[in-house]
Amino acid sequence: MKPAFEAGRPHGASKNLEERLEPVRKMLLPCMQCGTCSGSCPNAWAMDFSPRHLWRLLLTRNGEEIFKSRTFVLCSTCYSCTLRCPRGLPLTDAMSMLKQAAAAENVRMHRRSVGFYKSFMESVRRHGRVREMEFMTLYFLSMKNPAIPLRFTPLGMRLMAKRKVSFEIPSRGMGRLDAFFRKAKAVEDQS
């Protein structure tokens, strides 16, 4: 079978995915498979595995299946499952940990799903807050698909007409938040 993920350039520590699953597994051991999470999830219908099914896969050690699925990527963090779980399990945090594992290990099929927020934060890293035009430019570049910016052109024109975005040439900025990113990585490497 083809491996579900390809080891790319990791932006965190180079732990493997299995290792990253361990704390999530530990956290969800009390899961009793009632399915309240799936019933509460607004996006369950669009997922390949329901949230309940995903937790079962996790507990029965099917790590590869988990990272091949797009279930955790489609979690919109509404926290409904966390609110309703009769065992009081932090299920939204568990979804978040899976997203972070996929991002840190640069899992190929999920690369696109972090492009938006990565571009957003790249602009924040440079300037402290997001700059709309730069963020959009970075995002479109990361998508490597010329059709996407075209889709947004009418919206962009309207935004400019209303002076909601300004023409700013992407710049390196002052790298004001570089130290934050370095520190976070150091904490990650230690743990």
């Binding site: 932006h11 402290g128 520190k183 976070a184």
Partner: peptide, 21 residues
């Protein structure tokens, strides 16, 4: 600066530092 929210699901430590600041 940014509260770090956009990083909550990809890089939790950086998010925490942003919010803590």
């Amino acid at each position: 600066n940014c509260c770090g929210y956009p990083l909550r699901n990809s890089d939790r430590n950086t998010y925490l530092l942003f919010s803590a600041k």
